[in-house]
Amino acid sequence: MTDPQKPTAVLVHGAFAESSSWDDVIVGLQAEGYRVIAVANPLRSVASDSAYLKRVVDSIPGPVVLVGHSWGGMLISQAAVGSPNVTGLVYVAAFAPEAGESAADLSEGGSLGPTLTAIALEDGSNDVYVDPAKYHHQFCADVPDAQAAILAATQRPIRDAGLGEPASQDEPAWKHLPSWFLFGDQDLNIPVSSHRSMAARAGAVRTEEVPGASHVVGVSHPDKAIAIVLEALRAG
């Protein structure tokens, strides 16, 4: 049973994933009495997705810890600005952009691009997703074949324009809020050097680099994700 006196964990999935990617983390947090909301991320643009997330956050009574995976990090960095109930930010293999930086900037050197395939949209942009045949190696090399096949089949596409869209020119929330970083050293989407530099410039309370972990470190090592989110929740 959840405890209404405790902070709420708001989990934000990234591109090429969906809310169920947090399933094991949700179970662990709920077992400790925390309320959890796994947001259905629209995956349309930095500005509109962040605005949507901010409305979710502002609707929650009491303190909130925002947890972002991958593209979700772009959003928590922006949505927490001006939301006084947010007490901390957790980046799980996630982007933590400086003002004006894009996901494309921060993933330079990664190998995602050649694995993407597109669906044309009416406005001239595209929805992009990872070719299912390449998904296991690219996205989640450290999970079993059967689990990777499910992740590939349930992935949600992102509008391509969003990947190159710069973060707001406002100061990101990680400059004012405590932050925690968890990532794997075998992440093929976001280079480990980028993870390390983002954590360092944010002055992270704690940075944990998991040997052998892929881009889905929260799926392959849910115990690590649960522990670092609990630390953030208890700090608030």
Rank of each mutant, 00 (worst) to 15 (best):
L66R: 00
L89K: 10
L66V: 06
T117F: 02
S21W: 14
A47K: 12
S19G: 14
D131P: 11
V46I: 10
S179F: 02
W180P: 10
A148G: 06
D187A: 06
V64C: 05
E122W: 05
A104N: 14
A232V: 04
E18C: 12
A96S: 15
Q30H: 10
T154H: 11
E108N: 13
A141V: 03
D105I: 08
L177P: 05
T8F: 08
N126Y: 13
S102K: 11
T115R: 10
W174K: 05
G110M: 02
S21G: 15
V27A: 12
G218F: 14
G109Q: 08
L43H: 00
D223M: 01
H69L: 01
I228R: 01
V143T: 03
D58V: 01
S125P: 04
I150P: 02
V25C: 01
L230E: 11
L151R: 04
T207E: 15
P144W: 09
V128S: 09
K224P: 06
V39R: 07
I158F: 01
S59P: 08
T207W: 10
A133L: 13
A17D: 13
T207S: 14
S168N: 02
T207Y: 10
H195G: 08
G28D: 04
V36Q: 09
W22D: 04
V65C: 06
E209Y: 07
R156D: 01
V205G: 03
I37E: 06
T154W: 07
S77M: 09
L43Q: 07
P157C: 05
G109P: 13
E108R: 15
D105H: 12
L66N: 00
A40D: 15
P4G: 08
D58K: 09
S77P: 14
G88Q: 04
V10R: 02
I150C: 00
T117L: 09
V143G: 05
I119M: 10
L230F: 01
S50D: 01
P114I: 07
A51F: 00
H13F: 13
A213F: 06
A149V: 04
G82P: 06
Q169Y: 01
L75T: 07
S197Y: 00
A31E: 14
V27T: 05
Q30R: 15
A148T: 10
S83M: 03
V64H: 11
S48R: 10
A118S: 15
A47M: 05
G164M: 08
